[in-house]
């Protein structure tokens, strides 16, 4: 939290822990005036500047205001990207394999985690960061598995960013040689742009969505490393062309690893787990 005015920075994002109703941490980088501005302060400085200029305009000893162009060529997402690289370095040094799970709301990210975490935990410690606008519902579900979990509530925010993950990791106490699952805010648009420092991006779609989703939201599928098609147990009841969906996904990103699973029935999970374990052992 901001010490001066008490406002919450970074779009009002907060961290919460399941079972600890008193725990509430504001995401803020503590560097005042950089992460956020106090409207009042800005206003004062702006007013001063305008006031000065006004005086000059009536001054017979002209202080001509001159214009100058400054070339910056600075990446707009530089701040996030630099912090993401810091996260990545931290993860690499401590052999933490971080996965960023991305999807529309309701495609089964949390259910998939509930199924694969107990299986993966037999060979590697697992920790989870949950991202949602509000509630600790998802973190509560993961907490029930007995793994360390922290909830990021983004408030008005539509995605997780590297700063939120940086803060969450510090609060979570992730073990060395472990798997960190980051469940992003359910959204197929914005989270694609924000690197969190993960090793891999995992995009999940379900058969109750359209098979043209990769074409409708190409940025996400272009950024992803693997794509998991979930809820395949429902295929007999829905109009969904798996081959077409896969082809669409591959057209957007021909490096995409493709998996077909049902978190409910367990179908296809063995192949996914085998692939993940292979990546873990080569991490």
């Amino acid at each position: 939290m901001c010490d001066t005015c008490g406002c919450s920075a970074d779009g009002g994002a907060v961290l919460r822990k399941p079972g600890e109703s008193d725990y509430l941490m504001y995401v803020s980088d503590g560097n005042h005036g950089y992460t956020h501005h106090h409207a009042g302060e800005e206003h004062h400085s702006s007013a001063n500047v305008q006031g000065e200029h006004h005086d000059h305009a009536h001054d017979y000893h002209h202080h001509e205001s001159i214009t100058r162009k400054i070339v910056l060529e600075q990446d707009v997402l530089q701040k996030n990207n630099l912090l993401a690289e810091r996260n990545r370095g931290y993860f690499e040094a401590r052999h933490i394999f971080a996965l960023n799970f991305l999807s529309s709301p309701g495609s089964g990210k949390t259910t998939l985690l509930e199924i694969i975490i107990p299986l993966l935990q037999q060979r590697i410690p697992v920790a989870v960061i949950e991202g949602d606008q509000q509630t600790t519902n998802d973190a509560d579900r993961i907490h029930a598995l007995g793994v360390p979990v922290i909830q990021i509530n983004t408030g008005s925010g539509c995605h997780l960013d590297a700063l939120m993950v940086n803060r969450a990791v510090k609060e979570l106490e992730v073990q060395d040689n472990s798997l960190l699952c980051i469940e992003n805010v359910g959204n197929l648009v914005c989270p694609a742009l924000f690197d969190l420092g993960e090793a891999l991006k995992v995009v999940i779609i379900s058969v109750t969505e359209g098979d043209d989703k990769p074409l409708k939201y190409p940025t996400m599928f272009h950024e992803a490393d693997l794509c998991i098609l979930n809820k395949i147990d429902l295929l007999p009841y829905v109009e969904f062309d798996v081959a077409k969906c896969r082809e669409n996904a591959m057209r957007v990103n021909h490096h995409l690893e493709w998996f077909e699973v049902s978190a409910k029935s367990g179908e296809g999970l063995a192949i996914l787990l085998e692939w993940l374990e292979h990546r873990l052992s080569h991490h």
């Binding site: 000059h56 000893h61 002209h62 202080h63 001509e64 205001s65 001159i66 214009t67 100058r68 162009k69 400054i70 070339v71 910056l72 060529e73 600075q74 990446d75 707009v76 997402l77 272009h222 591959m250 057209r251 021909h254």
Partner: peptide
Amino acid sequence: LRITIVSGEEFLIQSITIEEEGEQE
């Protein structure tokens, strides 16, 4: 279909033009 994007993903602040106080005349 094995296409790699080589440009079009740029997202930069190219430059800013500022007004500053000139020399006193």
